[in-house]
Write a protein that binds this DNA or RNA. Structure first.
Lengths: 340, 340
DNA sequence: CTGAAAGCGCTTACAG
DNA sequence: CTGAAAGCGCTTACAG
């Protein structure tokens, strides 16, 4: 009755209905002072009659802000991204910002497309889990005042804020744990070696071995796609031959999952420490020992840093925040080496 | 050099720099025909020089659409919401829409706040996992042309599109499976009974028992908060007393998880079928038998329905889509009753 | 092929 | 206390 479908009333309509000026409507809608009670009542009546609701997109265009931030994930459907999103969302909410989310599917072109689409909407800031390509495409945006923080992996080709887990330190601690339990031949199974997290965790593996005076046979290191079949084959290879490894360090959640599947049938299983915690890890037999990172905390830290930048701290040079990891001992990492 | 930080060049700036009219810039930027090559080159040069990028928020305001949809979840951080988001995102992406996401934390006020904030931004449509309260607040928006689809649970107090899993049917199949394996005293552990999914799954439980001619002792039904301690206490209560249950049906992922923790220590465990799949379910000992729903498919179906509405189908009455569930047999549901 | 004017729905800066 | 004018950065409708 008030409006045909799709034609929403505007402030102009309210002003006409109430017989007042546009600015007076604006004052009432925004609770600004300096409106007589009688006037305010008349405006409010018109608002109610028409079912008026302010169009925030229009308001924000005039204001210059968008009160929104963009979050570019690898895949909103995986647990890591999900927990990270929760952290970002909580902080964004505290700052009165809405959150755009999108996934790159680990594809650099898609990340770029998505990030630029968000920039075109003029989001106030961007939190990005990099997909791997070069981030030069963001340079003009950053120079125009865009705030951007990278999480989980640093940006490539530009200097930018980043919030990372202590990947090398965590992996080193996990591998040292295996060494402390008597292992000398330890396999490393990771995803693609050019991915920053994988490279760092491999660095931690090497550091732990070196610190213990142990040699590393390059055949103990298996990196590649994380398809279960691929990982399964790698695991079986590491466990066979003349001098098989007695323990495995799996460098992320997907690899750990695939390795667990591959190991499920075996009578005698190697010791196993995984990077990243899994939901049912404590309920497996044996319990899964992991180096856990805190993806929600990563998201929160990234968003905190983003809003610091938005709140004026845009002079200081790019920062790199590193969050600690935590070794959670549950059984699988404390299995002694199989006696030959 | 081109612009002081924060002051981005606009089409007006480009027009001035190129010495052409605003509309010509618009034509070049939008690849519209009818611009002479010479003119186009001049405009392009100005665009490059100034580092101009079109402001889509402004464009969309003029256009009337926002090319964005809102997704209101219970908690972006949990696996169900996460998978559901993936489904919604994929469809939104195919339709050239960006996605706003936010979480209600199962709080009706927060859901309302969030949904209305998204409406104020004039999102084209809304996908909502209802938090429980009344949805009358959306009525004016719906009448103004907002498209909204509810997922996982139907809306309350209004007639609206909904995409649901076959909760009753799935639960019935899960409980029938336990009955087929010889169980007659079966416990039902669920979350809050006023939640639609819980109520439906309980209905399925009762239907399966009735169909088998089995009585239901109301003490076998435990509903309430899903805090692990609460669920653990309920599980222990069901397993004790004169005639303990020999099998459990746990009505959602959180309950199943808590029940598994409570059962972990026990020497002789009851049979268990859970509603919702879990990531490591196959790797437990015994494997976890579940009634799985497909949250990603729910999200996809909801978004498909939303875009059908946006693409013109807004005359037909509200639809209710129901997606099937799938019983996945892995071991825990096939344990025979303990002999007395 | 080109562009000046009006408008999307609001707010800002200003005058009464 | 009140409101007309100009403007946010674009597109639409129209005239040349």
């Amino acid at each position: 009755m008030n409006s045909r479908s799709g034609a929403r009333p505007t402030m102009k309509d309210v002003a006409a209905t109430a017989g007042v000026g546009l600015k007076t409507v604006s004052r009432v809608v925004n609770d600004e002072p300096g409106v007589s009670p009688a006037m305010a009542a008349r405006v409010q009546a018109a608002i109610d009659e028409l079912g008026f609701r302010r169009n925030d997109s229009a308001r924000l265009l005039r204001t210059g802000s968008t009160a929104s931030v963009g979050l570019v994930l690898e895949d909103i459907g995986d647990p890591f991204s999900s927990a990270l999103s929760r952290g970002v969302e909580a902080v964004a909410r505290d700052h009165g910002c809405l959150l755009f989310t999108g996934s790159s599917a680990e594809d650099a072109d898609r990340e770029r497309e998505l990030a630029l689409a968000l920039c075109a909407r003029r989001v106030d800031g961007l939190v990005v889990v990099p997909a791997g390509g070069d981030h030069g495409y963001l340079l003009p945006e950053l120079e125009s005042g865009l705030a951007a923080v990278f999480v989980d992996r640093p940006a490539t080709g530009i200097e930018a804020d980043a919030v990372l887990s202590d990947n090398a330190g965590g992996a080193r601690a996990g591998v040292a744990h295996l060494i402390a339990h008597g292992h000398r031949r330890i396999g490393f199974v990771g995803d693609l070696p050019h991915i920053h997290t994988c490279a760092e965790r491999l660095r931690g593996y090497r550091a732990a071995m070196r610190a213990a005076g142990l040699p590393v046979d390059e055949r103990w290191i298996a990196t590649g796609p994380t398809a279960p079949a691929t990982v399964g084959a790698a695991v079986r290879r590491l466990l066979s031959g003349a001098a098989p490894v007695t323990a495995l360090f799996t460098a992320n959640n997907r690899v750990t999952l695939a390795a667990l599947q591959a190991l499920a049938g075996l009578p005698r299983r190697p010791a196993l420490v995984g990077f990243d915690d899994l939901e049912l890890a404590a309920l497996l037999t044996p319990g899964l020992t992991v180096v856990a990172q805190d993806p929600e905390a990563l998201g929160r830290a990234a968003a905190d840093l983003l809003f610091e930048r938005l709140d004026g701290d845009d002079g200081t040079p790019p920062r790199r925040v590193e969050l600690p990891t935590r070794l959670i001992v549950r059984g699988s990492g404390e299995v002694p080496p199989a006696t030959a």
